[in-house]
Write a protein that binds this DNA or RNA. Sequence first.
DNA 1: CCACTGTTGTCAATCTATTGTCTAATTTTT
DNA 2: AAAAATTAGACAATAGATTGACAACAGTGG
Lengths: 295, 295
Amino acid sequence: MIRVWERRYGTVQPERSEGNQRFYSEEDVQRLALLKQATDAGHPISNITHLSVPHLRALLSPQGTSGDAPLPRVQLPAASPTRNAEQLIEAALKAVVGMDSAALEKILEEGAVTLGQNALLLQVIAPLVQRIGEEWQKGTLRIVHEHQASAVIRTFLGRAARPLAMHASAPVLVAATPAGQLHEIGAALVAAAASNQGWRVVYLGPSLPAEEIASAARQNGARVVALSIVHPADDPNLPDELRRLRQLLPDSVTVVAGGRSAEGYRDALFETRANLCGSLADFSSALDLLRQGVN
Amino acid sequence: MIRVWERRYGTVQPERSEGNQRFYSEEDVQRLALLKQATDAGHPISNITHLSVPHLRALLSPQGTSGDAPLPRVQLPAASPTRNAEQLIEAALKAVVGMDSAALEKILEEGAVTLGQNALLLQVIAPLVQRIGEEWQKGTLRIVHEHQASAVIRTFLGRAARPLAMHASAPVLVAATPAGQLHEIGAALVAAAASNQGWRVVYLGPSLPAEEIASAARQNGARVVALSIVHPADDPNLPDELRRLRQLLPDSVTVVAGGRSAEGYRDALFETRANLCGSLADFSSALDLLRQGVN
DNA sequence: CCACTGTTGTCAATCTATTGTCTAATTTTT
DNA sequence: AAAAATTAGACAATAGATTGACAACAGTGG
């Protein structure tokens, strides 16, 4: 059954061994269990294959159990030939240089439908943001392009990160950008990814002093503080900010840092015992570990 | 039944999936529910198939109780008593100090439903943003509160500003914040309001140099450039930016400026022949004038 | 009152799409 | 060598799509 789902809809894409045998991740297993429940409850598999674990929980838990009631249909009609992640990125870049925000938005939505939110974040949006950053540094793209694209992506992520029926017991993550870091897109990306993985996300936005981040973390009982460090790669104040943040946070809170320029502050990050992530995928798996209590 | 209505009268024409399955839009569903009520009440289907949702409501609501016919049911959730704008603002402020972004979002959504988008923008969000700014300056609110609230509102506005079926001939407005101005919420507010009034909005986000704004305006054939000036009220570079912007823009483009600190740059704004708006309502009516070609 | 006509809800027959299950021939692991 | 996974394809049960037919009913004209 599972293999047929994989063949027909790409429900999961497990790692393979040398001999081509499948290795399912913990998440795959969870997701498949939930999908089984959902299909047993009558949801057509084609409509829900790409939903993430929290989405599925939301679909199953709340009030749908009204008995033998007729079942809800989800999702949109699929029309055009589906594009893969790379094609979507290329199309998105074209929309960016053309300053066509409506087209960019459409592309992102298409990806959400065909790839699922999680894959969209990891395989399309994260690389796209990076590409835009690179092209901007090379001078191929103007500042406007970068800003406009950021605005569209920011909006999309805000929509993607909407908390759906969230358990009160979900672990809390605070996402922000330290003072002086003005690019918020990385933090928004992280927030969306975490939300997708079932964290309760407190999103604070860009350029917050250490005291403020710490205060938010305490007030919300956060287990993780995620920082995105992208643009000024040589801010002399940032190391102090990071150290101060560590002092203000309880020891039980883990700091995770990522972003294009995070490497540049390696020493300060080491002092704050921060988990340095090179990519969104890294971050994603780090979150999984942290949730299980492994610090 | 529905399919027969579709076949015979073209009552609805739902989208189709690849496999030729029907996908009814929300509106279709509503309309069909109302049609059912209307036919049950005795209206021949052939007479009313093409009526829109509001028409059908009008047909059903008023005094149709003339006989012993089954009575039309109203379908509002009708749970909580509707709150007016001021109550919503108060509730929103409470959510802000409690750092409860989910609650804040819910309040905004409630407002969108009960007041309508336009009134929500003018009577709730704009005053709320102002209040938050004031409380922050007074020190009643911390930076985190302001940031988190901004993030939520920003997301909400991004969603609210989605262009629905927009004519290619709609006039274009570019919304941004000049270089050095980091608070984007004012620009986002303006963008949402303009979008609601039928402008095609090119939203660029915060802190853009004059050259970039001008380039975007030219490339998109903008008729209006809207600037939001909120936080640094004493940026020595800003007047230059504004003058430069005027030089780079075609004369046919009108600049409109607003925001808490716009007054502080009155002279420079005068030189750029900018339309200074003291409130979002001002801006809104200015837009209406501009659309009719009055500069 | 009756025959005729047009409207409208319901149904059956047939076709297609979706989806769970099974088989067969290989390949990998134990 | 036995056990288990791999791929590809076939098949059956179910649900939706399409078409044509039919019955109930209201109106019309004789």
